[in-house]
């Protein structure tokens, strides 16, 4: 049984009388010990998807199951023990840590909420966690602003790990960090995963990072998954024209070969095009693409593509 199973998830926003379908029918699973990468550009709905899983944003419809328990139907009180198993690491480690709380309060607070009554035990767990993420125990009495960006992201990871979750949704966890710090954080996430048997849903716009961390990859465009593939297959042989364009647009990938870059921009999810969402920017688009929205077709284990013209 999949650790996390999401089926037909929708998250819509009402905006000035219009409906914005940020997540528009997404299904996937994350198995125990697996890292699933979720890539796409801003506005594709990847962050809304991540937050919907934790019900930080209420999904409009769909099922989110953790080990077979449907999270969506639980009331807040019953949700708590399930939510413990699903944690999140955010992009901006400054904006997501309360500036008025000490590191000790940030780390022990969740333990208290989840019923660990013994103050000393909480303190000890916090110190052990700081050690795991490579920060000194003396950090406990300090405030987030006293740390560098990389250290703050270590705190963000410590907070996510302290409740011993099974899955962590990592939303652009290294995007705000300098390259020399990125590797430190990616290695920390890798070590935590290996030692604690975690699963990650790793959301990023950076294909190179996802290529390094992910076992399986989901490519999202305008609220839908347009391609899924394994680490072995997706990068070597992308089937969807959008996936191909994303890979080609990675700077340095072409070394100035003069290859044509994708034109146009991501349309607004409020005025989603008819037919295939990608057809207006797609070099392969035909009349069929303007009419009919392609569904995800599976062509190998863990591999599927939503394109009328993909060679399977």
């Amino acid at each position: 049984m999949a650790t996390l199973s999401v089926s037909d998830l929708h998250t819509h926003y009402r905006q000035r009388g219009a409906t914005l379908r940020a997540v528009d029918g997404v299904s996937f699973t994350v198995e125990a010990g697996e890292t699933v990468g979720l890539v796409g550009e801003s506005g594709c709905g990847k962050s809304t998807l991540g937050k919907s899983l934790l019900r930080l944003i209420e999904p409009t419809s769909g099922r989110i199951e953790i080990d077979g328990t449907d999270m969506g139907r639980l009331l807040p009180k019953a949700l708590a023990p399930i939510r413990r198993r699903l944690q999140m690491v955010f992009q901006d480690p400054f904006g997501s840590l309360n500036p008025r709380h000490t590191v000790g309060e940030i780390l022990t607070g969740p333990l208290q909420v989840h019923g660990l009554r013994d103050r000393r035990a909480r303190q000890q767990r916090a110190i052990a966690m700081l050690d795991r993420v490579g920060l000194p125990a003396a950090s406990l009495t300090r405030y987030p602003h006293e740390f560098s960006g990389g250290q703050r992201q270590r705190l963000g990871i410590a907070r996510a790990l302290i409740l011993e979750p099974d899955i962590i949704v990592c939303d652009e966890p290294v995007s705000a960090l300098d390259l020399s710090i990125q590797a430190q954080i990616l290695n920390l996430l890798g070590a935590a995963k290996a030692e604690l048997g975690l699963s990650y849903l790793f959301i990023s716009h950076d294909l190179s990072v996802v290529r390094y961390v992910a076992d399986r990859i989901l490519v999202m465009y305008l609220g839908r998954i347009v391609e899924t593939g394994t680490h072995q297959s997706l990068w070597a042989q992308p089937r969807h024209p959008y996936t191909r364009a994303l890979i080609d647009a990675v700077p340095g990938a072409g070394q100035g070969t003069g290859r044509a870059h994708l034109g146009g921009e991501l349309p607004s999810a409020r005025q989603r095009p008819a037919g295939c969402r990608f057809h207006a920017r797609c070099p392969l688009a035909t009349e069929q693409c303007e009419r009919e929205e392609p569904t995800l077709r599976s062509f190998a284990p863990d591999s599927a593509v939503a394109c009328h013209h993909a060679e399977l």
Partner: peptide
Amino acid sequence: ASPRQRVGYHYTDGPL
């Protein structure tokens, strides 16, 4: 340290 400069290097191959 850059995953982009080491194309194809995967976490299962080792840390950065």
